[in-house]
């Protein structure tokens, strides 16, 4: 199979503005991932191509990028998914995720994203003494199930950078940070829901969500992001968790 790749390139030290680089790869196996192709391209054709990747198995969340117009993890996206069935030629367009400053080629500055993440206090808060037996703080299966979905986030930023509200205003805390807030707000053992609700209930919090569902479609972990945001809105509207 032949793959024609169109990649958004930009080197701030050399280029005045971004441009499209065009590449062709032959003998591609349809079961190869987009990350496999990018690594092959970097090794065989252009060593200056810059991208982030680490585990290559959809766990670390390093290689979120815009593939054929939608945010995906390059390592989890197989070439067979991008071409027409039975076709011997596939076209793939790759861009950096939107809404964050491009540092080089497919690498963006993730700091604003992590600043929003940190703002919701994404850690367990409980100042009461641990149980006398020294074991973990138990909770019911039903209580654990309430935030199970939002524990799956790998902070790849695919959701936040697919959100038009975030593109419009980078002050918006974004879907990923709200997912993290949800994970702790709905944890019956956590004692700081009100502090997190102050952040996500602010002008640039959940109210900026327009229920567009791009985040849910983009999530490589299949987290129901829009539903989680709606549940946080519900807490802010009713005062009940």
């Amino acid at each position: 199979m032949q793959v024609n790749m169109r990649i958004r390139r930009f080197n701030p030290e050399k280029d005045e503005k971004p441009y499209w680089g065009e590449y062709t790869l032959d003998d591609v196996d349809p079961n190869e991932s987009v990350l496999d192709l990018l690594r092959r391209l970097k090794g065989e054709q252009d060593g200056t191509l810059t991208l982030r990747s680490s585990c290559a198995h959809g766990v670390c969340g390093s290689d979120a990028m815009r593939i054929n117009g939608a945010n995906m993890l390059a390592c989890k996206t197989l070439v067979s998914r991008l071409g027409k069935e039975g076709s011997s030629e596939v076209k793939i367009q790759i861009e950096p995720i939107l809404g964050l400053k491009v540092q080089k080629d497919l690498v963006v500055d993730m700091e604003p994203f992590f600043d929003h993440y940190k703002s919701v206090m994404p850690y367990f808060v409980n100042d009461s003494p641990p149980p006398a037996d020294g074991r973990e703080r138990l909770q019911s299966i039903e209580d654990r199930a309430r935030f199970d979905d939002t524990t799956k986030c790998i902070l790849c930023a695919a959701c936040t950078t697919s959100c038009p509200s975030f593109w419009a205003n980078e002050k918006y805390v974004g879907p990923a940070a709200i997912v993290q807030a949800h994970r702790f707000i709905f944890d019956s053992r956590d004692q700081a829901p009100e502090e997190r609700l102050k952040v996500v209930g602010d002008t640039f919090g959940v109210w900026r969500c327009r229920t567009i569902f791009n985040c849910t479609n983009a999530c490589p972990r299949e987290i129901e992001v829009t539903k989680a945001i709606a549940e946080v809105k519900d807490v802010l509207a009713t005062g009940k968790i």
Binding site: S140, D143, G201, D202, G205, V235, K240
Partner: peptide, 25 residues
């Protein structure tokens, strides 16, 4: 206090601002 069966419901103080009022309206 966390329960070991069923769902724990809690009441919390929520911030009130014009965006929340607008959302509710």
């Amino acid at each position: 206090m966390t329960k070991l069966t069923g769902v724990t419901h809690r009441k919390v103080q929520v911030p009130s601002n014009k965006e929340r009022t607008a959302f509710l309206f």
